[in-house]
């Protein structure tokens, strides 16, 4: 469960060239739900997710992950998060198993539990076959599985996925969508940012349309379409919501 209230991030605050990258964003995502942040590049999606995963300090607002305040206990929040973005790479000179183990150990797993989690994660992702080859020698699909293994090796209740299918070819992207459905089925809370309207429609239970750091509409896909005055699809709804600014 993730709850965000009035989240704000201002760059160069109080200085010339001030940018309000995220401006009072609020939403709530529940376990077993895929919640989407839909918006064009530069809308503030990545900044929102980075604040959520505690690597950026918010200028204002609160974040609760599983009831834990991100500002007060960032370490506890990180423990509960699995993060993946489309730009995430792998360590070319480590094997998928070593990479998964590295992250599992950073998360404090040790001994038998460590070995069990690593083995199970690789098995579930069907990555055992290439688990002991250096990542640099793997195909892009295999690399993506190595990344996914690293994301969930500590069994996080919340997944933060920042444009996870960007830069991936169709087949690999499909394995990521499959992974998202599995995670949802396993009762994880999935936060997903995307600029792909089709992907948002297919995957998200609920979504927030974000533009210039602000939420313009929020709800299930039919609710967002209705809020946009009965738009036929999300793309039309998006332009209806952001109006004249859309091209900017």
């Amino acid at each position: 469960m993730v709850r965000v209230e009035g989240l704000t991030k201002i760059y160069r605050e109080g200085r010339p060239g001030e940018v309000r990258a995220v401006d009072g964003v609020s939403f709530e995502a529940r376990p077993g739900e895929v919640f989407g942040l839909l918006g064009p590049n530069g809308a503030g999606k990545t900044t929102t997710l980075r604040m959520l995963s505690t690597v950026l300090r918010p200028s204002g607002g609160t974040i609760l992950v599983d009831g834990v305040d991100a500002a007060a206990r960032p370490d506890e929040v990180r423990r509960r998060i699995g993060f993946l973005s489309g730009a995430t790479g792998v360590y070319d000179r480590l094997t998928p198993r070593e990479q998964a183990r590295y992250y599992a150990e950073l998360h404090g797993l040790a001994g038998e539990e460590l070995e069990r989690r690593v083995a199970e994660t690789l098995r579930v992702l069907r990555a055992e076959e290439f688990a002991d080859r250096p990542c640099g020698t793997l195909s892009s699909g295999q690399k993506q599985k190595a990344s996914l293994a690293r994301t969930v090796v500590h069994d996080p209740p919340v997944l933060v996925l920042d444009e996870p299918t960007a830069n991936l070819d169709v087949l690999v992207a499909r394995s990521v969508t499959e992974f998202i459905r599995q995670a949802k089925g396993a009762g994880r809370t999935v936060l997903l940012s995307t600029h792909d309207m089709g992907e948002a429609e297919r995957l998200c239970d609920r979504l927030a349309v974000v533009h210039r750091g602000r939420v313009r509409a929020m709800g299930t896909v039919p609710e967002v379409l209705a809020a946009a005055g009965g738009a036929p699809d999300l793309e039309a709804a998006f332009f209806a919501l952001v109006g004249e600014e859309g091209g900017a």
């Binding site: 690597v55 973005s85 992250y103």
Partner: peptide, 14 residues
Amino acid sequence: ERGTMETLLISPAT
């Protein structure tokens, strides 16, 4: 450059 920094920062390591 490889895009692994962000994930490392999100790990529990400070």
